[in-house]
């Protein structure tokens, strides 16, 4: 890991405005991402965890400028891209790619696997000839553990794990520095999940890739991340180096997420404090600490006063009044 971060995100906000009818006034504001800051260094993996609806995908898509931020800055190699126009963004787009959760719906079923993986090469005019591009695609196939002859197959001929490999090969095609991995293994069997996680780790070691790894399963994140950010209702509530987070979680929300991971050991019959209910509506968030409605330790102060994200140990941040 080098000192200068490749990606630096500061006070990022993305609010969605809900309107009444097509021309109506604003009827609500979804605080999908509400003041998120982090950075990612070379060959580093930052894990981003939280329940569905916490704003993880919106962070990923805003960082890639697939969505325009409401506020905040996004520096890539020191250049702020948060308000950059489409033309200026184009060369930077090659440096940042995304892989999605659902390898089934994110691939065009009518395209051959080789064309899917090579599509971005054509779009960005990489390689002088068709055969240059074909050679590059063949190379990508071997990087992700697919056979060259599979370039002529269609997505439906691939298993779920293989389709995820196709998505990874496509993301790798332009030699990016950063890949946003949006729940890339959540839809896969555990055995196949292990293959994909190991592949991502190998590719990182080989090409020095940086990952923003989005997941809701903390056990998966523990295997792949170097540092971890825990998100709740648009905010980061805890942030730490992996070993620190998993051995010394400070935020009650992180504790609940850890508690919820099923333990593959039938001799451990633990009684847990289950997190009850669902993530509250991000249009109308609870007052004070947003987590107080589900927090087993909430006090009066938590209902009225918003906690700030503060350092509780060196490099370990948590947003909780009780710490």
């Amino acid at each position: 890991m080098s000192d200068a971060p490749i990606l630096q995100v500061k006070d990022l906000k993305k609010h969605f405005l809900l309107r009444k009818g097509l021309f109506g006034g604003v009827s609500g504001r979804v605080h999908a991402v509400d003041g998120v800051s982090f950075d990612i260094g070379a060959a580093e993996t930052l894990g981003l965890v939280g329940e569905s609806g916490c704003g993880k995908s919106t962070v990923g898509r805003t960082v890639l400028r697939l969505l325009n931020p409401t506020a905040g800055t996004i520096h890539v190699h020191g250049t702020d891209i948060s308000t950059m126009g489409a033309r200026a963004l184009r060369p930077l787009r090659r440096q940042m790619q995304i892989i999605f959760q659902d390898p089934f719906s994110s691939l065009d079923p009518r395209m051959k696997a080789g064309d899917i993986v090579g599509e971005l090469l054509s779009v960005h005019n990489v390689g002088d000839t068709r055969s240059d591009r074909r050679a590059r695609v063949a190379e990508l196939f071997s990087h992700v553990g697919l056979r060259e002859d599979q370039m002529n197959s269609y997505p439906h001929e691939f298993s779920g794990g293989q389709r995820q490999r196709l998505g990874i090969a496509r993301a790798l095609s332009l030699n990016p520095e950063i890949i946003i991995c949006d729940e890339p293994v959540s839809a896969l069997d555990v055995s196949i999940q292990a293959q994909v996680i190991n592949l991502l780790a190998d590719l990182q070691a080989e090409f020095g890739l940086s990952y923003l790894f989005i997941a809701h399963d903390l056990a998966v994140v523990e295997h792949i991340a170097h540092r971890v950010a825990v998100m709740y209702l648009g905010r980061i509530v805890e942030f730490a180096e992996k070993h620190e987070l998993f051995s010394n979680a400070q935020h009650p929300y992180t504790e609940s997420l850890l508690d919820a991971v099923p333990v593959p050991d039938p001799t451990i019959k633990h009684t847990r404090r289950r997190l009850q209910g669902d993530v509250p509506n991000p249009i109308d968030r609870p007052s004070g600490c947003h987590f107080h409605t589900r927090c087993p330790y909430a006090e009066e102060r938590c209902r009225v006063e918003e906690p700030i994200l503060k350092e509780v140990a060196p490099g370990h941040l948590a947003a909780c009044h009780l710490k």
Binding site: I197, A225, V263
Partner: peptide, 29 residues
Amino acid sequence: LASVPRLGATTGAHSSDSRPARLAEISGI
């Protein structure tokens, strides 16, 4: 069994090695 990621599997190691731990895989499908 080996492919299930386990909480605490890497934190107990107390190593300065920042490389992610490898999970066991079953090859093939």
